[in-house]
Design a protein around this nucleic acid. Structure first.
Lengths: 205, 205
DNA sequence: TGTACATCAGTGAACGCGCGTTCACTGATGTAC
DNA sequence: TGTACATCAGTGAACGCGCGTTCACTGATGTAC
C-alpha cells in the first residue's frame, strides 16, 4: 500500500509541483512579493533548494504560475458575487463587490497579479486567466451600457468600462494600503456605509 | 577660495544629504523600490557606502525622506493644475489631472509614496507632506459638494471624496502598470479620448 | 515474469554576488580662550 | 592672532547573511523486449 502522506520520507515527492505552489502561496502571503524566494518555498515543501527549478525554472516561472491561479480564483470571486443578480446594474455592482472581496481576502495575490516585474506577462496561461477575469467586468459593463455582446465598444461604453475598473481597482488599492484609515477613522462607517456608497456609483454607467 | 564644485575630491562633501537624495531619486527611478540599495546611492554620490547611515540611518530613513519630497512635488502638481480654475467642478477635474500627471511623470515616486513597507509612515514630516497633498483633493471635493470648509464631511460628501480618490488613483495604477493597453490597443484613443472622458466623471459628486 | 536500460525527479556541495551593519580610524571644521 | 581641543563627517576593512545558479550525482520509475 502506498504511503498516503505524499512525500513522507520518500525520494520522489509524488506531487512536488502542487506542494511547491502551496508553499509559495504561504510565502507570498507572509512576506509579499519582495520577500519571496525560491529557497524558502523549497524549505517549506521539505525539499532541497534546487528542486523548484525542475518544475518552474526560476522565480518568475513560479510567481507566474501563482498569479495564474490567483486570476482564476479572482474570476471565481466575481462570478460567485454576481450569481443570481440579473438586472444589469445589480450585476455590475456585484462584480465590484467580488473584485473588492478578493482584494481584501487575498491582498498578496491581488498585488502579485497586477505587477510587471518578476512576472512573465507573455505566458499564455497567465494571459488566458487574466483575460477571463477581465471578461467578467467587461461583460457586466456591456450589459449595463446596453452595448452589443461582441462588437467593439464605442467611446462612451469604453469610458464606462475604464471608469468601473479604475474605481474598483483604486478602492481596492487604497483599502489594502490602509490609506483610507487616516481619512475616515471610524472603520465601521467605512466598511458598512462608505464603501457600499462608493460601489453604488457603479450602477450608472 | 573654496572649490565651487561641491565635494570635488574633498574629504567633507559639503552637502552630502542633498547629493544622496539626488542619487536616491535616480536609483529609485531606474530600479524601483525593489532594486533600491543604500550602497548604490552612496556609489552614485561618490562616497563610501557607510556614509549614508550618517544622514539617514538606514534604507527606511532615506526612502521616507524621498517619499516626503515626492509628496511635496505631488501636491505642487495638483496645485498647478488647478490654478485659474475657479468653478468647483473644474477645479475637481483639474486636481484629477494633476494627480494623474504626477503619476505618469514620476511612476517610481508615485509607487513609493503609497507603500507600507520600507517607509516610516509615522514620521512627522512624511505625514505632514502626505496630508498636505491629500488636502488638495479634499478641498476640491468639499467645494464641489458644497460642504462647509471645516466641518466633518457627511456620508454623501465622504463617499464623493472616496469615489474621486479611488477613481483617479485606480486610473493611475492601471495606466502605470500598462493594464489598459491590452484593453484599448489604440494608445491615442486612450490618451486623448478615454482618459479625459473618465476624468469627466469627477465633475458630478 | 523478468531483466536491462533510459528517463526523470530530487540531492547536496560549491560558487560568486551584493547587501546591511559595525567599528576603529582619520581628516576637516568650528569654538573657547 | 594663535593654539588646543571637541565635535562632526566620511573612510575602508571586515563580518555574516541569504540568495540564485550550476553541476555531477543518485535514487526511483517506467518501458521495451
Amino acid at each position: 500500500m502506498a504511503d498516503a502522506r505524499a512525500g513522507a520520507g520518500r525520494y520522489h515527492h509524488g506531487d512536488l509541483r502542487s506542494a511547491l505552489l502551496g508553499a509559495a502561496e504561504a510565502v507570498l502571503a507572509e512576506r509579499g512579493v519582495e520577500g519571496f524566494t525560491l529557497r524558502e518555498c523549497a524549505r517549506r515543501a521539505g525539499v532541497s533548494h534546487a528542486a523548484p527549478a525542475h518544475h518552474f525554472g526560476d522565480v518568475t516561472g513560479l510567481l507566474t504560475a501563482l498569479a495564474t491561479l490567483a486570476f482564476e480564483t479572482f474570476a471565481a470571486s466575481m462570478r460567485e458575487a454576481r450569481a443570481g443578480r440579473d438586472a444589469p446594474a445589480d450585476r455590475l455592482r456585484a462584480i465590484g463587490e467580488g473584485y473588492l472581496a478578493f482584494a481584501r481576502r487575498h491582498p498578496a495575490r491581488f498585488r502579485l497579479m497586477f505587477r510587471r516585474e518578476r512576472l512573465d506577462r507573455a505566458d499564455a496561461r497567465y494571459r488566458a486567466a487574466a483575460s477571463a477575469a477581465f471578461a467578467e467586468l467587461e461583460t457586466a459593463v456591456r450589459l449595463a451600457a446596453e452595448a452589443p455582446p461582441k462588437a467593439p465598444l464605442d467611446d462612451a461604453a469604453m469610458a464606462a468600462l475604464i471608469h468601473a475598473w479604475a474605481l474598483v481597482h483604486g478602492l481596492s488599492e487604497l483599502l489594502l494600503n490602509g490609506q483610507l484609515e487616516g481619512v475616515v477613522g471610524d472603520d465601521e462607517r467605512l466598511r458598512l456605509t462608505l464603501v457600499p456608497a462608493v460601489l453604488d456609483r457603479l450602477q450608472a454607467p
